[in-house]
Simulated assay, not measured.
Amino acid sequence: MFILIFAIFDFGRYAITMQSLRMLADASARANMLSCYSPAVLASNSPSSCTGDYLTAAQKQAIAPFLYNGGLSPTVTTTAGTSVLTVTASQSGFTMLFPVWGTSLNAPSVSTQIPF
Score class of each variant (00 low, 15 high):
Arg13His: 15
Arg13Pro: 06
Arg13Gln: 13
Arg13Thr: 02
Tyr14Asp: 10
Ala15Lys: 05
Ala15Ser: 11
Ile16Met: 13
Ile16Phe: 09
Met18Gln: 12
Ser20Pro: 06
Ser20Cys: 06
Arg22Val: 08
Met23Cys: 01
Leu24Asp: 03
Leu24Phe: 02
Asp26Ile: 03
Ser28Pro: 12
Ser28Cys: 07
Ala29Arg: 03
Arg30Trp: 02
Arg30Gln: 10
Ala31Met: 02
Asn32Phe: 03
Asn32Leu: 14
Met33Phe: 02
Met33Thr: 10
Leu34Trp: 00
Leu34Asn: 11
Leu34Met: 07
Cys36Tyr: 05
Cys36Phe: 01
Tyr37Ile: 05
Tyr37Gly: 04
Pro39Thr: 09
Pro39His: 06
Pro39Ser: 04
Pro39Arg: 09
Ala40His: 01
Val41Phe: 03
Val41Asn: 02
Val41Lys: 01
Leu42Gly: 02
Leu42Trp: 05
Leu42Thr: 07
Ala43Ser: 12
Ala43Asp: 10
Ala43Asn: 09
Ala43Lys: 08
Ser44Ile: 08
Ser44Ala: 06
Pro47Ala: 13
Pro47Met: 10
Thr51Tyr: 02
Gly52Arg: 00
Asp53Lys: 12
Asp53Met: 08
Asp53Gly: 05
Asp53Ile: 02
Asp53Trp: 00
Ala57Asn: 12
Ala57Gln: 13
Ala58Trp: 13
Lys60Met: 15
Ile63Ala: 07
Ile63Gln: 06
Ala64Gln: 06
Phe66Cys: 10
Tyr68Gly: 11
Tyr68Trp: 15
Asn69Asp: 15
Gly70Ser: 15
Gly70Phe: 10
Gly71Glu: 11
Gly71Gln: 13
Leu72Tyr: 14
Leu72Phe: 13
Leu72Met: 15
Pro74Gly: 13
Thr75Leu: 12
Thr75Gly: 08
Val76Leu: 11
Val76Lys: 05
Val76Tyr: 00
Thr79Leu: 05
Thr79Ala: 11
Thr79Val: 15
Thr79Tyr: 00
Ala80His: 04
Ala80Asn: 11
Ala80Phe: 10
Gly81Pro: 03
Thr82Arg: 08
Thr82Pro: 06
Thr82Phe: 01
